[in-house]
Amino acid sequence: MKRLFKTSVLISSVVGVVLFTACNNTQQKSSGLEDKHIPQQDSTYACPMHPEVTGKKGDICHKCGMELVAATDENENRVEVELITEPQSIEAGTSTKLTFAFKENDRNVPLDISHERKVHLMIVDENLTWFRHIHPLEQADSTYVVSETFPYGGKYILFADHKPQGVGPTVDKKVITVKGNPNSVKVDLTPNFVSVIDGYTVTLENGDDLKTIRTQALEISVERNKKRLAEKDIEPYLGATAHIAMIGKEDIDFLHIHPTTDKRFPIYAETHIENPGIYRIWVEFQTYGKVHTADFTVNVLQGNEEYQEGGHNHH
């Protein structure tokens, strides 16, 4: 996640203390950085995914649905994430206890709720063929615990999305190795924009037009029994119409995307992809109390810099 801007304050002192006027309080160094930060009484709040969207405390980004955070150096993440697995040696097909501790100065720090949970844990295998989105539960010692059974041997990548109090949302990535036989299913990463799950046909309508360097839409339609669904036909899930995770095959670049409202599509989001290549996309949506997970494979092409619109995702 890119660092939000910092505001520097220029103070000049003589024999006494001289207070400058408000115009001096907004003067900035050309670098945009300062060793010391003097907090302002009225901080500017911005979206961590779309910094061009600003407002006041408690406002929601109209593009991605994330809560705006104070645009100060307090948002720089200083929290370390520790993971303990029980048993330490993980075997495929055996339940494993995962314990996460979010620490600053060797002390567990409190987390804020973000999209109805304090920790969103997304797990994929190294071939991006297996995906899980689960939520560790908070314990009395402020650690977070969940159990998972890994289906086959190999490496798995764990993304822990969390928001320490006073800090912007961030994602921690860890890699674990699971013993056992590897997946026998052949990996197929051919671009695919249609997913059929639980009787629903889910289509990424603009899947063949994704490019880097520009903010663009993910336009997703949902059909059941030859009838196209509207947003009202989908139940809220984790505080939004759906949940979207997008992961790059080459560098395992992770994008956590929150849909917003659009009259044309029941699931719609805006994203900014930095690197070209093959990506896997998982879309979770809920109907009649059940969560369905559709998946796509896309080939993101290098965009034209002249088309750049700015913005970034929560990595």
Rank of each mutant, 00 (worst) to 15 (best):
A217W: 09
P39R: 14
G58N: 12
T149L: 14
I176Y: 10
V196Y: 03
T271M: 04
L68V: 00
N225E: 10
I90C: 01
S89N: 11
Q28H: 03
E76C: 11
L301Y: 10
G180W: 08
E205G: 01
G32H: 05
I11D: 14
R280E: 02
Q165V: 12
L33R: 08
N299K: 06
T177I: 13
D188K: 01
G239E: 13
E104Y: 08
Y152F: 15
Q302Y: 13
E274H: 09
A230R: 10
S147Q: 02
S13F: 05
K97A: 00
V298G: 12
T44C: 11
G168H: 01
V178Y: 06
H314A: 12
D172E: 14
P87E: 01
D253C: 05
C64T: 12
Y156R: 03
I244C: 04
G58R: 00
N105T: 09
N299G: 00
G55Y: 09
K2V: 12
M1A: 10
V283S: 01
I244Q: 07
G55I: 14
T212V: 08
S95H: 04
K226D: 10
P48F: 04
I220Y: 00
V124R: 06
E250L: 13
L98R: 06
D161W: 05
T85Y: 00
M122V: 01
Y268S: 01
K57L: 00
I176L: 06
V178Q: 08
I60H: 15
Q41H: 14
H312V: 02
D262S: 07
K97Q: 01
Y152R: 11
V81Y: 02
E34W: 08
K163P: 01
E284N: 06
F150A: 08
E284D: 07
Y279G: 12
I176G: 13
N127P: 10
P191V: 07
Y268G: 01
Y279M: 07
N24E: 15
T215M: 13
T201D: 08
